[in-house]
């Protein structure tokens, strides 16, 4: 395993599109070659070396490459986007599209992330120690095939639009979320350990949601069917089981209509 270290040396005047910052792009390159990799600031084609001091050579393949960014990347987009293997660690904040379209490997953001993190994700692991803004694990605009696999874990809170059009994979938000969880989803699991304002599972066809805090406004299309004991992220809870969205179309499996499931803590 080889580690490439990026030390931020300059804050971009606008925003730097660091789409080259992935183990896949770094693989097989020396520090000097990595510094020459492209990125955009507006319409200007820049180099990674314009914004980062780069040390260490990359491994042979993406899987042997670890990238560590030692400072704040609040104005750097696309970190770890489209990566397939290896790791990226940011010791600070990151801007939009962290781990977007990623297929494998691991991204760890120690600060906060902006919007569109993990959009269209297909595999791998995205961990954020802080908060995320909107559209976590969401589909790209107009695409009805959203997140397909992998795991996103946000240790803080998230905004709206979590797992829109989700087909698979897991999203865990350890604190609160705002509105629109698993809207239009046809699979996947979303776990929210804090409170949610509302719109949980609207237009949802299939998939599971767990909200361990309170839902302020429940969707009218959900009905309670039973109370179950379930393990959620390693802990067992007694949960009320709702099905829905009864207003939406649903498929059948073995002659039974398959609904989306929502689990909330059982009423005492």
């Amino acid at each position: 395993m080889a580690t490439v270290t990026l030390k931020p040396i300059k804050t971009p005047e606008l925003i730097f599109e660091g789409y080259s910052i992935t183990p896949d792009n770094f693989a097989g390159k020396t520090a000097a070659q990595i510094a020459d990799l492209p990125g955009h600031e507006g319409k200007i084609l820049m180099r990674l070396g314009d914004f980062f001091e780069i040390s260490g050579n990359a491994g042979e393949t993406a899987a042997d490459t670890n990238i560590v960014i030692t400072g704040d990347c609040s104005r750097v987009k696309y970190i770890g986007a489209r990566m397939t293997a290896g790791t990226v660690t940011v010791n600070g904040n990151a801007d939009m599209y962290v781990g977007g379209w990623m297929k494998g490997g691991k991204v760890h953001i120690k600060g906060n992330m902006d919007s569109f993190c993990g959009i269209q994700m297909e595999g791998g692991e995205l961990i954020c120690d802080g908060d995320a803004k909107n559209h976590v694990g969401c589909a790209y605009r107009g695409d009805w095939r959203g997140m397909k696999g992998g795991t996103i874990r946000i240790r803080g809170s998230a905004g709206n639009d979590i797992g829109t059009f989700m087909l698979g994979g897991t999203i865990i938000i350890e604190k609160d979320a705002f509105i629109h969880v698993s809207t239009h989803a046809e699979g996947g699991t979303v776990i929210i350990k804090g409170d949610v304002e509302g719109r949980v599972g609207g237009q949802m066809v299939k998939g599971d949601m767990y909200v361990l805090g309170k839902i302020k406004f429940m969707m009218p299309g959900y009905q309670k069917v039973d109370t179950v004991e379930k393990e959620v992220d390693g802990v067992t809870y007694k949960l009320d089981h709702y099905i829905g969205d009864l207003g939406e179309r649903h498929g059948k499996s073995k002659g039974q209509i398959v609904y989306a499931n929502l689990y909330v803590p059982a009423a005492a």
Binding site: R199, L246, G247
Partner: peptide, 23 residues
């Protein structure tokens, strides 16, 4: 700010399911 819930309520009713007392 509760338009989405009301749309869902209409759709649920149209599919023949019951909805809460107020939406």
């Amino acid at each position: 700010g509760h338009d989405y819930e009301l749309f869902d309520a209409f759709r649920t009713v149209l599919r023949g399911f019951d909805i809460p007392e107020t939406v």
